[in-house]
Design a protein around this nucleic acid. Structure first.
Lengths: 214, 214
DNA sequence: GCATATATAGTCATTTTCGACTAAACTATC
DNA sequence: GATAGTTTAGTCGAAAATGACTATATATGC
């Protein structure tokens, strides 16, 4: 039962979480999210934030408290959360934790068309990926440790980073194994795979009875 | 070097892969993608497909070959791939396989605000998630085996499903462990965590010197 | 032989998202 | 004290994505 949210951009969840603490204006939210590293898990663009805020006001999740102007700078609208907003925050959060949702990743899209490149090239590219992933996971691990050390944060407040790291490491192991399996011909006969690329169609499914018309 | 693609929706990659085989009209692409299970890895909506196709024609990746009309049904425009399209397909695919890209998932967003619920509730929700994931991975595994058996496909053509399954299983193991760690108080002191919810602000970072201003 | 459901083949208006831009204030430097 | 760079605080228009809708053809049950 994934109910349709009135404002579905996860940024809205972050906005509510922040306003739960105290009222603030949008730019301040950006600063806080960055400080706390939440922009690593919730896609944050200025332009999206401002439209999300407008939508949230329209839906009664937040409400403008005051508009202050300092000097000749643009006005800053300070927003507060409403009871509806607090309720929406909890409901949404529960749903996110309880129900796995299907996500579409770039890498999976790439894998879907793996036969579109000859096996030798696929292997070379995947080996490059392994190198990237090794570097990336190394950096993630040390930056995670550094952050926790610096701010004396309990794991509770950075658990999403551990999650991300785990996913990357799982991918790393899997890709390493994939490379070996390709080389061993365990994904499919390498000669057949290569043959796809000496013909016209690089994607026919092996069973392909498809002809080329005109 | 993730170059900006003129048409960035991964559906465009699928379109090129299909047109590599033979010219066809959009609705036919949908049918084929479904048959081959590619709609599980590339988000497929009719409306998106048609706008992607228009954009691809504009960018010279594909070209209309003919418009046929059968009976009083709407016209069907048959598209073919161009040389630029073939080149773009290979370049894009290489990039997808070579370079890991940052992805934002719903679950990670949820985890980011885990302190927003009391520990007992978090545990209950995550346990529900575990049950869902067990069911899901079970189904994925058997449907994968069924598909391969039915069509006699080599793994090469369904490797993206193995990838998805691996990610789900990694998540499953991680969430199981997370539940235990929460209960053991290893994410942070449970009394402090509970205390967040008897006060006003459910997200203060433990260090919180933030005051409530009227 | 008629009603109902499903498959075929899309269109369109609205919403969402983003990249590029603006513009004042403050900071450092020579 | 001129100027160059950064931070603060957003706006705006264009592109992308989607949900809802249309309309014919064919199959199915009774």
């Amino acid at each position: 039962m994934v109910s349709k949210r009135k404002v579905s951009n996860p940024l809205a969840l972050a906005v509510m979480a922040l306003l739960f603490e105290r009222p603030m204006y949008p730019y301040e939210m950006v600063t806080l999210m960055r400080e706390r590293g939440k922009h690593e898990t919730v896609r944050l663009r200025y332009s999206s934030l401002y439209s999300v805020v407008v939508a949230m006001e329209r839906e009664g999740l937040i409400v403008p408290r005051e508009t202050v102007r300092e000097g000749r700078r643009p006005e800053r609208t300070v927003y507060g959360i409403t009871d509806a907003g607090r309720e929406e925050f909890r409901t949404w959060l529960r749903e996110l934790l309880r129900e796995p949702v299907k996500e579409y990743t770039q890498f999976a899209a790439g894998l879907s068309f793996l036969p579109g490149l000859p096996p030798e090239e696929a292997v070379a590219l995947l080996e490059e990926r392994v190198r990237h992933l090794e570097e990336e996971t190394g950096e993630m691990r040390s930056s995670l440790e550094a952050t926790m050390e610096q701010w004396k944060l309990p794991r509770l407040f950075v658990i999403e980073s551990e999650h991300e790291l785990m996913l990357r490491e799982a991918e790393l192991g899997w890709v390493r194994k994939l490379v070996e399996e390709i080389e061993a011909g365990e994904l499919g006969n390498l000669t057949e795979w290569r043959a796809i690329h000496s013909e016209q169609s690089p994607m026919s499914t092996g069973k392909g009875g498809e002809e080329n018309d005109a």
